[in-house]
């Protein structure tokens, strides 16, 4: 089914980039729906949100913010490396990004399991006894960070594929749009976290 017609050898990097941005908009609005829910409930139960946020470990939150910011920087730098035809550095930088992402996930795992261990998870007996706003806060906490973690996993998959493509040369200084778009996706994950972090951890 592959067209071998040379007329159809259509390549449009700018178009691909616009497409990626539009996809990012859909992701922003996907989380936007959640931020709207957050805003409504916080407006109604700001006291409860305040007390509930004390339960979250701001240190872990800050650590994860630092990790994600660093990983964003390394992805961005890997583009510079590829453009400078420095394939090796690019691969190292992408590798660092993936390791940082993994560390983020490990942190998240411990954070969640700690909370679950304390008995604070959706459907638990303890949750049912909480104030209404606290209950909503933790529901939002699990849903938002859960969906965000899912995006981290997707991003890691994409970046892994790109890493291999950099290695075999199919992503290079001339054909770099895939890496750029993968990078955009990764920055999006970062972007969402930049808002999640203060809203969940810093409103104490």
């Amino acid at each position: 089914m592959a067209h071998s017609n040379p007329l159809l050898e259509h390549r449009d990097d700018e178009g691909a980039k616009i497409g990626m941005w539009i996809f990012i908009f859909t992701e922003i609005l996907l989380f936007g729906g959640l931020f709207l829910v957050y805003a409504v409930f916080r407006n109604q139960y700001s006291e409860d949100f305040h007390t509930a946020a004390f339960e979250l470990n701001a240190f872990v939150g800050t650590l994860n913010t630092v990790i994600l910011l660093c990983s964003s920087a390394t992805v961005a730098m890997s583009i510079t490396a590829v453009l400078k035809k420095d394939r090796k550095t690019a691969m190292i930088l992408l590798g660092i990004t993936l390791v940082l992402a993994l560390v983020f996930m490990v942190n998240k795992y411990f954070e969640w399991s700690h909370k679950i261990h304390e008995g604070i998870y959706p459907g638990s007996e303890l949750m049912a006894d909480l104030e209404r706003g606290e209950l909503l806060f933790f529901s939002l906490y699990y849903f938002m960070t859960g969906l965000h973690a899912l995006h981290i996993l997707i991003g890691m998959t994409i970046l892994t594929v790109i890493l291999f493509k950099v290695r075999n040369g199919s992503v290079n200084d001339d054909k770099i749009v895939l890496l750029e778009n993968g990078g955009l996706y990764w920055h999006l994950v970062d972007l969402i976290w930049i808002f999640l972090f203060p809203l969940l951890y810093l409103i104490t």
């Binding site: 539009i22 908009f25 859909t26 992701e27 609005l29 996907l30 989380f31 936007g32 729906g33 959640l34 969906l147």
Partner: peptide, 9 residues
């Protein structure tokens, strides 16, 4: 593009 994600989430 702009409305569907909201109902998606």
């Amino acid at each position: 593009v702009l409305a569907t994600p909201i109902v998606g989430v």
